[in-house]
């Protein structure tokens, strides 16, 4: 009886999950393979003529290779901001967890505020302009670091609490300098949470649409999410190219997902169980 029920439930779950979660992706792939005429029908059908490769070439070379520029921009943005995030957040998390000072209360409050408060957009643009960082890639890199620091610090602080303090003291007694303690002893031990941080924040920043839209306008400044937005207006009759673009920018997160599924889940569920 229970066996039958379990099988019944499994079959339903697999069917429903396929319809709800897999079919939209199949639709993306199928539309990306079609030609212009058939894709305009917007229907869920088998491509009459497979031209995925032509579509890829088309979408990459269009508008003076905009998508290629965008991939380069997005890669620089992601790599640079995640690198800074990891180093700076680990430094804060380490000292914040180890040293009890009267600043800790304020810092914890600022971390929570950073997770909750929506960034004030126009004042930020005004400030970036004053500093000559508006519509500059390095300006956006610093913005991404500022906005994502609170979450990274939380991850690091929780993990550092599990590393015994005796380790730091033993190293100091053995003659290590403070900087060595952090960079040579603590940082390597933080590797698991560093991987989690890198993976979660890379996906977030690579997929970021709002911040590049506001802080990095202008030709040649596009990030991959914005190409989609630009193509949406330009290609409102060329759905095959629009969906080829969606397919192309879904590949990086897919690769990350295939290799780092466990670390992502660890990162997003941190703090969910305690209490």
């Amino acid at each position: 009886m229970s066996l039958i029920r379990r099988h019944w439930l499994s079959v339903v779950a697999i069917l429903v999950s396929f319809v709800v979660f897999v079919i939209p992706f199949i639709f993306i792939v199928l539309t990306a393979m079609k030609d212009k005429r058939q894709s305009a029908l917007l229907d869920f059908s088998w491509p009459e003529k497979f031209q995925l490769w032509e579509n890829i070439v088309d979408v990459i070379t269009t508008r003076n290779w905009q998508l290629l520029t965008a991939f380069i921009n997005s890669t620089i943005l992601t790599v640079a901001s995640v690198t800074l995030l990891v180093v700076f957040a680990a430094m804060v998390g380490f000292v914040l967890q180890r040293r009890r000072t009267r600043w800790n209360g304020l810092i914890n409050f600022l971390i929570l505020a950073g997770l909750m408060i929506p960034p004030a957009i126009v004042p930020t643009i005004w400030l970036l302009q004053a500093m000559g960082l508006f519509a500059k890639l390095h300006g956006l890199i610093l913005i991404e670091v500022a906005y994502h620091l609170p979450f990274s610090i939380l991850l690091y602080r929780a993990f550092i609490a599990t590393i015994p303090k005796d380790l730091d003291e033993a190293a100091i007694i053995d003659g290590a300098r403070p900087l060595d303690v952090f960079f040579r002893i603590i940082m390597p031990l933080l590797w698991p949470v560093t991987v989690t941080n890198i993976v979660v924040q890379s996906v977030t920043i690579f997929n970021d649409f709002t911040n590049p839209l506001y802080y990095l306008p202008g030709r040649g400044n596009e990030t991959v999410q914005l190409t989609l937005y630009n193509f949406q207006s330009q290609f409102n009759t060329s759905y095959h190219l629009l969906f080829t673009n969606i397919l192309l920018i879904t590949i990086p997160p897919l690769i990350v997902f295939l290799f780092f599924n466990r670390q992502i889940v660890a990162g997003v569920t941190a703090g969910a169980v305690k209490g």
Binding site: V95, P123, E169
Partner: peptide, 28 residues
């Protein structure tokens, strides 16, 4: 022992967060 956990470790994060997040928030 005190300097095992140097206070200036807060600085890079504090500057970026302070200038690009807190200042605009107050200015708003």
């Amino acid at each position: 022992r005190r300097s095992t956990y140097p206070g200036w470790f807060f600085l890079p994060a504090a500057i970026i967060y302070g200038v690009l997040f807190l200042v605009p928030t107050f200015a708003s």
